[in-house]
C-alpha cells in the first residue's frame, strides 16, 4: 500500500531551476559554513585592526629576552634597521595571508561559506548567471606556489624569533639561556605553521608530484620519498590550517597582553 508523500520536499529534479539552499538533505549542513564565516571573519578583522593599531610594535622584552609576535615578524626594525610610521607588518603579512587565501583548503572553505558555491554538498548554491570557476577573475589562484615560497621564508623568520626568545641579555652585556611560557608558545606556533606550510598542495607537487615517474632514477626515488613525507602532512592540511591559524592568533594575543603589562611572561633563566 502506498500513498503520495507531501511532507518532505525532494531535491530539484534534473532540468528544474535550483534556488539557493534547495536540497533534500535534512541534516544541519549550514552549521559548517556558518562556523567558517564566523571564524575567518573574526580572524581577519582581528588581524587587520591589530596590525593597523600597533604600528610601533617593538616586541616583548622580559628581563632582556625579545619575543616577537608572529603578526609582526620578521622584526624589520630590529633585524634590518627598517623604520616607518606606516603599518609596516603589511609588508610581510601579504605572504602568509596570500598563502591562506590561495590555499586549496581555504579555497574550499571560502567558496563554500562566503560564496555559497555550493554551501554544502548536494545543496544548491547561490544563483549565478555565468559560473566560471577559477578560469577568469579567480585565475590568480594559480599563483599559490609563489605565496608558498614567500610564506616559507616567513616561517624561517618565526623559527629565528623562537631561537632569539631563548636568549636573555644580562646586566654585564652578556647573554644567558632561558625559557618562558611565551617562547614555548612561539615554538608551538612555529611547529603548527610548519605543518601547515610544508603540507601545502603546491609544495607537494613541486617536491615530487610533478614527476611522471617516481621510480626511474635515484633522484626521482629521493623525491618520491620527500613527496610521501609531504603527503603525510598534506592529508591533514585542513587540521593544520585551522590549528596554525589559532596558534598565530593565540601567540599574538599572549604576547600582546604580556607586552602590555597585563601580566609578566613566566620564565626561567639558566
Amino acid at each position: 500500500m502506498s500513498t503520495t508523500s507531501e511532507a518532505l520536499k525532494p531535491s530539484p529534479a534534473y532540468g528544474e531551476p535550483r534556488k539557493a539552499g534547495a536540497t533534500a538533505r535534512r541534516d544541519r549542513w549550514w552549521v559548517q559554513p556558518f562556523l567558517v564565516v564566523a571564524a575567518l571573519t573574526t580572524f581577519g578583522i582581528y588581524t587587520i585592526v591589530r596590525v593597523i593599531l600597533s604600528t610601533k610594535y617593538p616586541g616583548v622584552y622580559t628581563d632582556g629576552a625579545h619575543l616577537q609576535s608572529p603578526m609582526f615578524s620578521p622584526d624589520l626594525a630590529g633585524i634590518f634597521g627598517f623604520h616607518t610610521k606606516l603599518p609596516w607588518s603589511f609588508l610581510v603579512l601579504w605572504a602568509p595571508l596570500g598563502m591562506r587565501t590561495t590555499c586549496y583548503y581555504y579555497r574550499k572553505s571560502i567558496y563554500r561559506s562566503y560564496f555559497l558555491a555550493p554551501p554544502a554538498c548536494a545543496v544548491a548554491g547561490a544563483a549565478r548567471r555565468k559560473y566560471s570557476g577559477e578560469t577568469k577573475m579567480l585565475l590568480f589562484m594559480n599563483l599559490h606556489r609563489f605565496f608558498f615560497y614567500a610564506a616559507a621564508i616567513v616561517v624561517g623568520f618565526l623559527a629565528f624569533d623562537f631561537v632569539r626568545s631563548l636568549f636573555y641579555a644580562t646586566a654585564g652585556g652578556g647573554t644567558s639561556f632561558g625559557v618562558s611560557i611565551g617562547s614555548l608558545i612561539m615554538l608551538i606556533n612555529v611547529v603548527c605553521l610548519s605543518g601547515y606550510t610544508f603540507g601545502c598542495n603546491s609544495f607537494r607537487h613541486l617536491i615530487g608530484g610533478n614527476l611522471d615517474c617516481f621510480d626511474c632514477s635515484a633522484s626521482t626515488r629521493t623525491r618520491h620519498t620527500l613527496w610521501q613525507r609531504v603527503t603525510t602532512l598534506n592529508v591533514r592540511h585542513q587540521e593544520w590550517a585551522w590549528l596554525s591559524m589559532f596558534t598565530v592568533w593565540g601567540t599574538d594575543l599572549y604576547l600582546w597582553l604580556a607586552g602590555s603589562g597585563v601580566f609578566t611572561d613566566p620564565h626561567h633563566i639558566f
Binding site: K108, A117, G133
Partner: peptide, 9 residues
Amino acid sequence: VGLCNITKC
C-alpha cells in the same frame, strides 16, 4: 579543470 573550485564534494 579550471572550472573546479575544489569544494571536495
